[in-house]
Amino acid sequence: MDKALLEESLQKLRQIGVKEIAKQTKISTSRLQDILDLQFEHTQRVHLVGFVQILEREYKLDLSGVLKAYDDYHNNHSAQPEQVEKSVQVQDLSLDTQKQRYDAIDERKKQANSKQKFYITLVSVVIVILLYLVYQNVASKYASNAKDSTQDSATEIQAGEESIQAENMAQGAPQDSSAESSTPESISVDSGIDSTPDAQSQKIPDTKDSAASPAQSSTLESTSASPDTESRADNTMAITTDIMLWFDIIDLDTNRRKYQGVTSDTYSIKTDNHRWLLAFGHSNFSLTMNGSPFTFPKSNYPLYFIYEPDNGFKKIDPQTYKRLAEQVR
């Protein structure tokens, strides 16, 4: 080995310091100082080989020249041939001090670290994929439940409208019979007219006018009352929201619950000129009657209202709502 290269390696060790090297390698300072000074009077070659291996592995240096210097030193200062033979026999130990051996060890460590990183990355990717699949499954179930609740509310609305139409038809039948019964009464009045020609000629116009006027007045009254009745009966209440909203609707006139559930769309119902009791889980929605909005303070707390045909919507406290809701069958 070139002496200049050996001296460069020893100089690096001197810069680190004997105490620091001894602390890291557990080699005594006296042995380290002998190696740095190339003084081998009190050092055996077998021990020196171990010290050199430790220093090469720790600081990645080529110190094979130290062993050559050791051999040269003992060759010059030894007079016994047996010692020379022993030094030659131990010369093969210098092969263990080559840097290639430690470079191979470092390379294997790098490969092991690379494989470990690869497996960690693979496991992380698998975990992320599983989490994504679980999220998709939960989201699909939630969307399906929301769709089913919307369909159920639509079915209930349709059933409510059909029942309302049936009630309107049932209420309309007696009115028609009463209208028809007025005709015989007018005929019976006409049958009481005086039979004399003069009286007949004088009274016929009067009886016709008197008979016509009640019929016309009843017709006018029914005509004038019909739009108001229809408008009151056709009052449509609508609840519109774009997030999940729990609400409860009770018909106070029949003491029956019309709907109780959750929706994230529009729910509408005809009031049938009844009084209604309403409860909502929060205030993120709009409430309209025949398209006219009803304004109320917004909050995250439950809200309670009562609707009356003559007074419209009115906010009530929880105690009033509880008292009125207890009557529901």
Results as ranks from 00 to 15, higher is better:
Glu180Phe: 15
Thr241Tyr: 00
Arg108Val: 10
Leu277Tyr: 01
Gln83Glu: 13
Glu308Leu: 11
Lys19Leu: 06
Asn235Tyr: 06
Gln80Thr: 12
Asp92Ser: 08
Asp71Asn: 08
Glu20His: 09
Tyr267Gln: 04
Lys203Met: 15
Gln136Lys: 07
Gln39Thr: 14
Glu107Phe: 03
Thr266Gln: 07
Asp96His: 14
Leu55Ala: 06
Asn235Ala: 13
Ala199Lys: 07
Arg108Ser: 08
Trp246Lys: 08
Gln100Phe: 14
Ile35Pro: 07
Lys110Phe: 09
Asn255Gln: 12
Gln165Val: 12
Arg232Glu: 05
Ser153Asp: 02
Ile27Val: 07
Tyr132Glu: 02
Ala104Asn: 15
Tyr321Asp: 07
Asp72Pro: 01
Ala325Asn: 11
Leu63Pro: 14
Ala104Glu: 13
Lys117Met: 04
His42Phe: 14
Ser224Arg: 06
Ile164Asp: 09
Gly17Tyr: 13
Thr196Ala: 11
Gln15Trp: 13
Thr266Ala: 10
Pro174Trp: 00
Ile35Cys: 06
Ala22Met: 02
Ser217Ile: 06
Ile243Asn: 03
Phe305Gly: 02
Ala279Gly: 07
Val138Trp: 00
Ala173Glu: 05
Leu38Gln: 15
Met1Thr: 15
Asp272Cys: 10
Ser191Pro: 08
Ile157Asp: 00
Ser153Gly: 02
Leu133Arg: 01
Ile193Pro: 01
Leu133Gly: 10
Arg275Met: 05
Gln11Val: 11
Ser292Trp: 03
Glu82Phe: 11
Ala279Leu: 09
Lys115Leu: 08
Tyr119Val: 03
Thr155Tyr: 03
Ala233Gly: 09
Glu8Lys: 13
Leu287Gln: 02
Lys147Phe: 00
Val52Met: 02
Asp228Pro: 01
Ile105Thr: 09
Ala170Asp: 07
Ser153Arg: 05
Val88Lys: 09
Phe313Leu: 01
Tyr119Glu: 12
His77Arg: 12
Gln15Asn: 11
Ser218Met: 10
Gly65Asp: 00
Gly50His: 12
Thr266Tyr: 12
Ile54Ser: 02
Leu93Pro: 04
Lys315Pro: 13
Ile204Ala: 13
Leu95Trp: 10
Leu55Val: 06
Thr207Ile: 15
Pro293Ala: 04
Phe280Ser: 03
Asp148Pro: 03
Gln98Glu: 11
Ser94Gly: 08
Ala179Lys: 11
Ala22Gln: 10
Asp265Glu: 09
Ser264Glu: 09
